[in-house]
Write a protein that binds this DNA or RNA. Structure first.
Lengths: 191, 191
DNA sequence: CGTCTATTTGAATGTACTCAAAAGCGGTGG
DNA sequence: CCACCGCTTTTGAGTACATTCAAATAGACG
């Protein structure tokens, strides 16, 4: 199995080599070229994905026909459209690679089988969801309490590599602001 | 055990009467008077709470010394400060009853024991976390795409009982706006 | 009834957006 | 290797949405 995922799993549950192999047997490696889609609006999302290398963005088209980015996924993140996956309804999201990306696909039917074969899978994903939810709440907190400018600087200083890897207009979208405004924030800072 | 919680659990996992009794033996009923606190900033959050009756708000004090409400909990919701509970760090939140409230406390040490005694507990909470995360993402979506006015009307029409149960300034805070602005939204609608 | 809290109203202000145009940058083909 | 094209970023003027602050009004509770 991918060494990153092994390390990731071991951070949360004790797992033997045999169990790792079992887990691995349910995963399917996939690669995406830059701009390729993992999911488009209207499709059913049927898998969870672990990103081993690259970068993914999740976005939807809002009522003004703008792409609104909900979040990014990078190395060592699990991503999926939970709403579509869990509720088995057509997705409202696009999931697209912003770089050439490698990931491991865990199909939902495999996930369910794996939960039976290896019950600690439930524990592992329970903990991941808790962490994911905490991150989501922190983000809400920042959005409430910070101005656009503070939000931008907080994001850039917490994720310096992002400023390199994704275009500025995507960071603007993630933070819920216009590209023009981000440009003006940067112009301020320079003096 | 509380019939609401039984029904709630059965929605997500198959569970026998014996198992229900086991689960119940780890729970401790608590009551809160209106305005009483379940948690204050600086304390360690050590439990998860299932609300059987009443209403709870989670808020923090932001950098302008305003109370910023993150969310409410009402009947049949699990609430806790996940960040404090999971990471075992002092809480930044206040958790307070906005009505006389009854809840069932599941202490984290009991939770861990319960996960061993009754492994499907992991599954149950994994599913709850997924649902909770989906709700949190939807909320982010609305905050990105709707104006203050749309946000308010969406909230009121989706949660009509709330307008009754909690004061307007708390709804304003939840939605990230000032009480004055909510008042003006309502004044508009009337004509 | 009086006090404290919540809501409303209005004027002035500020933060971020829209729209339009220009400048910068990167890749591709001649 | 340069020229061109498309995409991204910058700049500026005008505007909109929501906030701040202050004061008046309404409502709840003992």
């Amino acid at each position: 199995m991918n060494p990153n995922l092994i390390e990731y799993i071991k951070r949360y549950v004790n797992i033997s080599q045999t169990e790792i192999d079992l887990f691995n047997s349910y995963l399917k490696p996939r690669t995406l070229k830059k701009k390729e889609f993992l999911l488009k609006e209207g499709q059913l999302c049927k898998s969870r994905y672990f990103i081993t290398k690259g970068c993914i963005r999740l976005y939807y088209i809002d009522n003004k026909a703008n792409e609104q980015i909900l979040h990014f996924g990078i190395d060592n993140w699990w991503i999926t459209d939970y709403e579509s996956l869990i509720n088995k309804i057509p997705s409202k999201l696009y999931i697209q690679a912003t770089e050439n990306t490698e990931l491991l696909e865990l199909a939902q039917e495999n996930f369910e089988e794996l939960c039976i074969e290896l019950p600690k899978t439930e524990r592992f994903f329970r903990i991941i969801m808790e962490k994911t939810y905490i991150a989501s709440q922190k983000r809400l907190e920042y959005m409430f309490s910070l101005t656009g400018e503070e939000l931008y600087h907080k994001f850039i200083s917490s994720n310096p590599e992002f400023a390199q890897r994704v275009p500025q207009y995507m960071i603007a979208s993630l933070l819920g602001m216009t590209p023009e405004f981000v440009s003006k924030i940067r112009a301020n800072k320079k003096q």
